[in-house]
């Protein structure tokens, strides 16, 4: 194990442990509010009538709407005292999400690594989130990197 003040044995043990599933029913109003908040007037997210005539047959959620579907808490292995910045996301999409769908989110730590940054030693935490619909199909996955310092 590398010499480090912020990387712990406990973190490495938490890698791969899945959170308890968290399930959300997708509301039309929430999709619209999210689209408005990001400033995206795409008819697929905002115009029920127009969306009905497309291949999707109804409104769908914008690609990053899943950000609003929070997972249950991951194991508390990272100190709350550390500051936090979002490093980025990698998404894969498999199934569209419609109003009325029930999406179940699970998350797991993928890796913990350290790096020397401008503000001292930083911890890079990679988490993978999986979003499944009520038919047990994976609708999307997201891999996020957060920077703790």
């Amino acid at each position: 194990m590398p010499e480090s003040s912020i990387l712990t044995e406990e973190m490495l043990k938490a890698v791969g442990v899945e959170t308890k599933p968290a399930t959300y029913e997708i509301e039309k109003g929430h999709i619209r509010r999210f689209a408005e908040a990001i400033g995206d007037s795409n008819i697929l997210f905002t115009d029920e009538k127009a969306a009905r005539k497309t291949r999707y047959g109804s409104l769908i959620a914008p690609p990053t709407f899943f950000r609003a579907l929070l997972s249950s808490d991951l194991p508390p292995v990272v100190s709350e005292k550390l500051r936090k910045l979002d490093g980025g996301s990698q998404w894969e999409y498999f199934e569209p999400v419609h109003p009325g769908d029930r999406i179940t989110v699970t998350a797991k730590y993928v890796s913990f690594t350290t790096r020397q940054g401008r503000m001292g030693e930083m911890l890079l935490v990679v988490v993978e989130l999986t979003y499944k619909n009520q038919f047990d199909e994976v609708a999307a996955t997201q891999r996020t990197t957060s920077i703790r310092y």
Partner: peptide, 8 residues
């Protein structure tokens, strides 16, 4: 859209 990735 099949994949989307961003780095801040």
């Amino acid at each position: 859209l099949r994949k989307l990735s961003v780095q801040y």
